[in-house]
């Protein structure tokens, strides 16, 4: 009994890990195969014709992330500073709890929200609307990670600064935030990685565009959206491109995750040593 059950738990872990390995392996093998220079540098070809690429979607995803970072990070960061440094008891608890709930809001609902508050008043789809939908999704993640890393800053540091006569806000700005900065930046990186792959909020906000979209006021192509419409299409060439795009997206997301982990674990080692 003992042995059987223990082995079974091991099998469970093995299954979970092997699923990931399979996904990774399959995407690298299948997506990497179809990754060409043309794919990275050309615009999509007219439907049904082979060739073309997703250059505009790669750039479009970058733009969306930029807007998301510009709108979501300041709010999330300052909110996190508040929770960790200035908060009392009840109100911060409510903020924290609401942030967690907001984090659980289905992404498609965020899309509806961005549609009604950005797209409809503006009168058209735009990169801005898509980026803001993603930005709204960033906020709760950044709030929580910022708070967590600021809390991890040792009390002695704050006390030291205060003892030297610094104000509270000066202490926070010059001692606490710099000390927790590495973690906070990592948290932001992770949150960006998470929203980079979101498709549902973009369906009716940033929409799509087969050309370059200039500025932030026009609809724009994005990698997740292109993967979606290419994958459900009947064209073999589009399927190949969907795999290649999936490979790029996954590579970026996983690189950010692994990078974040490396930064954090090294940081901890330094702190311990």
């Amino acid at each position: 009994m003992n042995g059987i059950m223990l082995t079974l738990t091991g099998v469970c872990a093995l299954i979970a890990v092997s699923v990931l390995m399979f996904i990774l392996g399959y995407l690298v093998w299948n997506g990497g195969r179809y990754l060409t220079w043309t794919f990275l540098t050309h615009l999509p070809a007219p439907v049904g014709e082979t060739g073309g690429g997703m250059a505009n979607a790669i750039v479009g995803s970058g733009k969306l992330l930029l807007i998301a970072a510009l709108t979501g990070v300041p709010v999330g960061f300052m909110g996190g500073v508040y929770l960790s440094e200035f908060g009392g008891k009840t109100f911060p608890f409510m903020v924290r709890y609401t942030a967690d709930l907001l984090n659980g809001v289905p992404s498609i609902v965020m899309g509806i929200f961005a549609f009604t508050v950005v797209v409809l008043p503006m009168g058209h789809f735009s990169a801005l609307a898509g980026g803001m939908a993603l930005g709204a999704m960033l906020i709760p993640i950044v709030v929580r990670s910022t708070e967590e890393f600021l809390r991890a800053v040792p009390l002695t540091l704050r006390e030291g600064a205060l003892a030297l006569g610094a104000n509270k806000w000066k202490t926070v700005a010059t001692v606490v935030i710099p000390a927790g900065f590495q973690g906070i930046a990592t948290g932001i990186l992770l949150s960006l990685a998470r929203v980079a792959g979101e498709t549902a909020p973009l369906l009716f906000t940033s929409f799509n565009n087969q050309y370059w979209s200039s500025g932030f006021n026009q609809p724009t192509a994005s990698l997740p959206y292109m993967i979606y419409i290419y994958a459900i299409s009947p064209y073999d060439d589009w399927h190949r491109q969907a795999w290649a795009a999936g490979f790029i997206l996954l590579a970026l997301v996983l690189a950010a995750n692994i990078g974040a982990r490396l930064i954090l674990s090294r940081g901890i080692r330094v702190a311990r040593g």
């Binding site: 790669i58 750039v59 733009k63 930029l66 970072a69 900065f181 590495q182 930046a185 990592t186 990078g259």
Partner: peptide, 23 residues
Amino acid sequence: MKKLALAGLMAVLTLGVLLVSKS
């Protein structure tokens, strides 16, 4: 370490800006 994280973040953002301005 801090610098590494900062550099990473800056790299992402600059890349974004670059791509946008180039688009």
